[in-house]
């Protein structure tokens, strides 16, 4: 049989309110994401020619405005946070063995951390008018 585990023997010690916090975070980020993802899909897929209109110039035009930069940053953080926390539960449910579980969660954590850093960098250090790029690919304000 699978005996009940002694909480004192957990591989990692977690604070008492960790699971409650996780539960609340899922609902808060989830509600936020309804607006953020909904808007993202609407603006990208439902205007103009949908994804066919999404190119360098389109994205540069959006990120010229701090509104879209902040929107996309929130989207990045909330999306990865909500998704990673959900996957943490899935890993806890299906991966057997304390060490294997910890490994999967660590790997996921590292991947998510890298993507948060990368994504933030991409949004906030974006150069809409890079040198040497063909003018027809650039947004109109590059002049």
């Amino acid at each position: 049989m699978i005996p009940r585990r002694d909480p004192a023997k957990r591989a990692v010690v977690v604070p008492q309110r960790a699971e409650l916090t996780s539960w609340v975070i899922m609902r808060v980020t989830g509600a936020l994401l309804i607006v953020l993802v909904g808007g993202h899909l609407a603006i990208n897929l439902m205007t103009g020619h949908g994804v066919h209109s999404v190119d360098f110039a389109f994205v540069s035009g959006k990120w010229a405005s701090p509104f879209w930069q902040v929107w996309d940053l929130l989207l990045l953080l909330a999306g990865l946070g909500h998704g990673a926390n959900g996957m943490r539960t899935v890993i806890n449910d299906y991966v057997r063995g304390d060490r294997a579980r910890l490994t999967w969660k660590l790997v996921m954590g590292v991947v998510v951390a890298i993507l948060v850093a990368l994504g933030s960098l991409v949004i906030f250090t974006h150069d809409p008018c890079p040198h040497g790029a063909p003018a027809d690919l650039l947004p109109s304000f590059c002049g």
Binding site: M1, I2, P3, R5, R96, G97
Partner: peptide, 28 residues
């Protein structure tokens, strides 16, 4: 017997008469 009881619908001890494998143990 107690230690080797397996759980229907979850994993169970691979050895019929072996010691119980706790949740932290190797994959069954």
């Amino acid at each position: 017997e107690g230690a080797s009881r397996s759980v229907v619908g979850a994993e169970s001890s691979g050895e019929m008469a072996g010691a119980a494998q706790p949740r932290t143990g190797k994959a069954r």
